[in-house]
Design a protein around this nucleic acid. Structure first.
Length: 417
DNA sequence: TCTGGGGTCCTAGGACCC
DNA sequence: TCTGGGGTCCTAGGACCC
């Protein structure tokens, strides 16, 4: 097998630079919503010592002092750019997996291909010239190794953005890779491994299967096999049906009162429901949860799981279930900072079985609900999001809404407006 | 003062059954 | 007083990913 991993460099920043080419070579960062954390950094911003995931308030002064351009996220833009990147990539192989918004695995086991590295350079050039997105490409016999190769391509300028592990001394390569850099080895696992004296990818690769299985999980075993060059994480070509849909937001400020929480939970149920219907799915279970800040005091994060009578895609039923769940878990006197709704047990809409004791009216009502939702979605699509929504949401304060102060998302000026 | 959002998979342990 | 064994299913929570 020959896999290539194509990974867009500093993807969100690179997308913003397409619209603002003059920012090339300048420090740029993109923030998560709610002015939260730094989630994408240009190389220049990395060089200034701005860490990934850092809360913005901790680096705000630095960004102002050093003239860093700051963007809010613009997911519509990133998804559009992503779609175009994937389209270009699909010209270069018959088999590929869109792994995330900014990464794709390509099957390059192409018989006629004599020089994979040169081929990858062609891909890289096309993406840069046609879309303006710089990428790193790693080539190896397994997906896990291809990820490591792409990392090397990204960090080592001498590679020109393309690095292949084929025909290389893997022992020497893996010896220099910290085990925590391996795909699938997270923070906790890295800590545990360190206690056993395993700190490099090479040591991990050479651990015994049953030992890994005992102390970690089957996935750790798979990862070790992949590092040995034996492919056992396969390419997933068609995107499998989604298994859950989540809608959650941190509040602009901590909230304790039930009324505000009801609004937030209603909004999340509506938003999750829209996405549910846009995929032609229905949900059999709904979860609703609240959470206090994980950074101060004792974490309090109650959750309720609501089984629907039958799988549904109706906002009316989803909102009802969400509010019932909320009533169940709400406790006064807590400073909640976040609420969310998750839809589970997803399946195709419209094929639900008639329950044993359900009469004609139930079916009729379901039919009406579906027609109503279709109409609501159509109106919101043509007249704008939120044109039709539950009365509860046409309220006054909207205290629960995330704050989006200070950043226009266009100029990137932190001007306090 | 201020700390993202949306996913997947695995596992342990409880519930239940015979 | 003494209190089986083994199987399946479900779920909550943990870990990981981008």
């Amino acid at each position: 097998m020959r896999f290539a991993l194509c990974d867009c460099n500093n993807f969100f920043v690179s997308c913003e630079r397409i619209l603002r080419p003059e920012l090339e070579g300048k420090p740029v960062i993109v923030l998560s919503c709610n002015d939260g954390c730094v989630i994408s950094r240009s190389n220049e911003a990395k060089a200034l010592g701005i860490p990934m995931g850092e809360p913005f308030f901790k680096v705000r002064a630095l960004t102002e002092a050093r003239g860093v351009t700051v963007f809010s996220t613009n997911f519509a833009l990133y998804h559009e750019v992503s779609r175009r990147v994937m389209t270009v990539l699909s010209r270069y192989t018959d088999r590929m997996e869109t792994y995330s918004v900014d990464e794709a695995f390509l099957d390059l086991s192409i018989a006629s291909l004599t020089d994979p590295v040169e081929y990858a350079r062609g891909i890289r050039k096309a993406l840069l010239e046609e879309i303006g997105i710089p990428v790193s490409i790693g080539i190896a016999s397994t997906k896990t190794l291809a990820k490591l190769a792409a990392d090397r391509g990204k960090k080592d300028p001498e590679t020109g953005g393309v690095f292949s592990l084929e025909g290389l001394d893997l022992d020497a390569f893996l010896e220099k890779v910290p085990v925590g850099d391996v795909w699938g080895i997270g923070r906790r696992c890295t800590e545990s491994l360190s206690r056993f004296g395993i700190r490099t990818a090479r040591r991990f690769r050479d651990a015994k299967d049953d030992w890994l299985r005992r102390h970690f999980s089957v996935r750790a075993v798979h990862t070790a096999w992949e590092l040995r060059g034996i492919s056992c994480i396969r390419l997933v070509e068609e995107d499998p049906a989604q298994k859950s849909i989540q809608a959650s937001r941190s509040f602009g400020k901590p909230l304790s009162d039930l009324e505000s929480l009801k609004e937030a939970v209603t909004a999340h149920a509506v938003s999750a429901g829209e996405r549910l219907r846009s995929q032609g799915l229905a949900a059999g279970t709904l979860q609703v949860y609240l959470s206090t800040s994980r950074f101060r005091g004792n974490l309090f994060a109650p959750a309720a799981t609501m089984k629907m009578d039958a799988p549904t895609s109706s906002n009316l039923l989803l909102v009802k279930a969400a509010l019932e769940g909320l009533e169940r878990i709400y406790a006064p006197g807590h400073a909640f900072t976040k609420a969310g709704v998750t839809l589970l047990d997803l399946g195709p809409d419209g094929v639900t079985q008639q329950g044993l004791f359900e009469g004609e009216e139930v079916l009729l009502k379901r039919k009406r609900d579906r027609a109503l939702m279709a109409a609501v979605d159509e109106v919101n699509r043509t007249l704008g999001e939120g044109t039709l929504q539950p009365a509860l949401l046409f309220s006054k304060e909207r205290e629960w809404e995330p704050k989006h102060e200070k950043l226009s998302g266009k100029t990137g000026k932190s001007d306090g407006k």
